[in-house]
Design a binder for these strands. Structure first.
Length: 453
DNA sequence: TTAGGGATAAGG
DNA sequence: CCTTATCCCTAA
């Protein structure tokens, strides 16, 4: 049963929306060994925690804790620290500090306290143990923030900047990368493998009518069946293929199939490109029986986890400038699709029936609304359907202009606008505090009108 | 990513 | 109108 526990926990942790599951609780409920599988499980749980807090829109010092824990786990796993991880940490730390910059002037105690608590103590500890989380950006922020204590103007500028958005971006990226690194969950692997096997069998019977598709599946099957699976970093060639097939045809192992389907439907992004990877605890023999038993087990668990009630919260508006301790109710500037309209009726507590979906009998699962993208940005066009909302015009402050001049002086030729091997983005990153609200394109544009072209 | 053209808004 | 400063879009 231990393997089951493992698998199920893993599976549950990786599902997109399960706010009711507290990863840490779940993990501690199981007695885990110390194998590398368990390490991965723990990593999954931390990722899930981060993800949940992101969904709730909560970026706080708890997030910092999580990022630190994640770093340690990755260290145990001998993984390298990703850039996104460092950046996420750095900007989250900044965001946490920004929270306490709501008074107009720095003299207030909160800011100094926050500085002390976060930057001196917490990050001091990191420095002591030589953590890689201490990046250049982080140090830069540290000096900037501490300088802001005496420099009211700098304080103002930081105070008004939108750090939250950047933090969210990096956190999201980090999650995406880490999930991808983890690869398929064991359950998915089994299902996929069984599917491919079956598919391959079928193919032998009617060889004719299919095209590249079959080849792909066939190939993967052979690869899988050869069972010397160490393709940790397999090229992601036809991943889309396998995925799509899987989604449509997988009907056996209903419980599992169902869940996996749903997962793919809602979580596509996170698993895309990852499903080639496989790691399998210890199944060789009898995964058929295992799968069958799992089906029952899963359904049971599924019931307990509460599939039907779901509360979705809009990630706290990424547009907020002055970070809101108490979010003001009036926030304009929601871009079209994202939804202050998706509000499900606030969490009705009846887990049993009475729902329109009624008691889903294990076959038909209730449909959920398509997931809302995590963040919305006024600064970048990314995640959403094009907002026709222009970001408000904001005149360049002399400081920004000065910083831009410095940047260009450092990296490039002032006259010809040739940046030696560096980009506008590098200039922006060279001064994240000042340029927090400018995109690299903004820098470019500003420079254009500065030199009068 | 960047360069460059366009759109938008504010001021003359 | 025209100019200026910003922001946005897109081809390369």
């Amino acid at each position: 049963m231990e393997i089951f526990d493992n698998w199920v926990a893993e599976f549950v942790l990786r599902r997109q929306h399960n706010p009711r599951v507290l990863p840490t609780k779940l993990i501690s409920a199981l007695q885990l060994g110390d194998s590398s599988d368990c390490l991965k499980l723990k990593i999954s749980s931390v990722l899930r925690d981060i993800s949940n807090s992101l969904i709730r829109g909560a970026i706080d010092e708890g997030t910092l804790d999580l990022l630190e824990v994640l770093e340690k786990l990755l260290l145990q796993q001998h993984s390298l620290l990703m850039e996104s991880h460092k950046s996420a940490y750095c900007w989250t730390a900044a965001e946490c500090t920004l929270r306490f910059m709501w008074p107009l002037i720095a003299s207030d105690g909160f800011f100094t306290e926050a500085l002390e608590r976060i930057w001196t103590k917490r990050i001091g500890v990191l420095k002591e143990r030589g953590s890689d989380l201490v990046s250049r950006d982080l140090l830069k922020w540290e000096t900037d923030l501490k300088r802001a204590l005496e420099d009211p103007e700098l304080y103002q500028r930081i105070r008004e900047s939108n750090i939250r958005y950047t933090a969210i971006t990096f956190l999201t990226q980090l999650l995406k990368e880490q999930w991808a690194l983890l690869g398929s969950s064991s359950l998915e692997s089994v299902v996929q493998r069984r599917f491919l096997k079956r598919k391959a069998d079928n193919v032998e019977e009617d060889i004719v009518d299919k095209r590249g598709n079959t080849n792909a599946a066939d190939e993967s099957t052979r690869r899988l069946e050869s069972d010397t699976i160490d393709n940790a970093n397999e090229p992601r060639g036809e991943s889309g293929d396998g995925n799509g097939n899987n989604r449509e045809n997988d009907n056996d192992v209903e419980g599992v199939g169902c869940l996996v389907n749903e997962k793919h439907a809602s979580e596509e992004e996170q698993t895309v490109g990852a499903q080639e990877q496989e790691y399998e605890p210890s199944l060789d023999k009898g995964d058929e029986t295992a799968a069958r038993e799992l089906k029952g087990y899963l359904l049971e668990i599924q019931g307990q986890i509460d599939p039907s009630t779901r509360q979705r919260e809009e990630p706290n508006n990424a547009i907020d400038h002055s970070v809101n301790i108490t979010p003001p109710p009036t926030r304009m500037n929601r871009t079209g699709t994202s939804g202050q309209d998706h509000n499900e009726a606030p969490d009705d507590v009846n887990k049993k029936g009475s729902d329109s979906q009624g008691t889903w009998s294990g076959r038909v699962r209730p449909r959920r609304p398509t997931p809302v993208p995590l963040n919305v940005s006024p600064l970048k066009k990314g995640g959403l359907a094009k907002s026709h909302v222009r970001r408000p015009k904001k005149f360049w402050t002399p400081e920004e202009v000065e910083a831009l001049r410095e940047g260009v002086k450092e990296y490039g030729n002032t006259l010809c606008l040739v940046l030696y091997g560096k980009s506008w983005k590098d200039i922006k990153n060279g001064n994240p505090a000042v340029f927090a609200e400018r995109t690299e394109v903004d820098l470019k544009d500003k420079w254009r009108n500065l030199v009068g072209g």
